[in-house]
Amino acid sequence: MQQGAFSRLADWSSRRPWLWSFVGAGVIFLATIAFTSGKGGADVLAAALTFASFYVIVGIGQMFVITTGPGNVDLSIPANIALAGAVAMKVMDGSNVMILPGLAAVAGVGLAIGCFNFALIRILSIPPIIATLSASFLVQSTAIAYGRGLRIKPPPLFAELATGRLLGVPILAIMALVVAAVMAVVLRRTVYGRSVLAIGQNARAAGLAGIRVERVRFATYVLSAVFASLCGALLAGFSGGASLNMGEEFLLASIAVVVIGGTSVAGGFSNVPGIWGASLFLYLLVTMLNTFGVGAGVRLILTGLIIIAVIALSGGRRAGRG
């Protein structure tokens, strides 16, 4: 009897690979709260929701790219964020009226970077890792040249959007939740989302079944780049201006949240809820280490080791080359 219940539980959780990221986030949250004996729990949670939102937005784009199969990954995200942040601040120029044109310009940046990435992959048949890497070199240089000495504050309304709260919940988190819900439906219920999954499982079979493989991959790289650009704009709004190294941490973060969230690096199997769980986990981990009062060095070491431990334990089911 007990055996049956246990194996049913194991079966239930194995169909929900995202469960573990939420369990991990919960455990870390409780450990942090226990350390401060309950003080500041709500603040920690609000901050976690805000910072996790950035990870979520970027992570969803990265997840779609990784889902399209082994070797697919978008390394241009950090450079993209830096450029998009600078473009957003320059176009908006601190005025509320220019917020929408600014966001349109940012989406244009994402679109251009996505198209460029895919052009390198498709026309020059460069492996995606190298293609997005060399594209990121160019984007990074553009961001440096364009954004040097940029000291423009975000428009008040835009800053409010990025930092404000609605009924105690960060507006940003609500937006990210909506985006995640929409993208979960896109992944599971639309022709595009199912095509992405099919291509990741077997690109050849998907092609023979009539899926326009290259068109879907094109859309996926553009999607990832546009999400990263929007995240760059929001990040600039949140931190009161764009900075050039704003996107640095998102290279690891975007890949880590996808993997910790239970998405297969080999492609073809992914889920959106895990991105939220993993993003909360990643941010709460740093908060916990800060609360415990460890220095920057120890924090970096533990962050690295815990990420490795998580993926070593969750295992590389039919994992290929990442």
């Binding site: 990954v73 880590a256 690096v265 070491i301 962050t303 690295g304 990420i307 490795i308 990442g322």
Partner: peptide, 16 residues
């Protein structure tokens, strides 16, 4: 395991 995730994690380790 996917090497890029493990080595990204290691990059944090070495930096720390």
């Amino acid at each position: 395991l996917p090497s890029i995730v493990v080595t990204l994690g290691m990059s944090f380790f070495w930096l720390g």
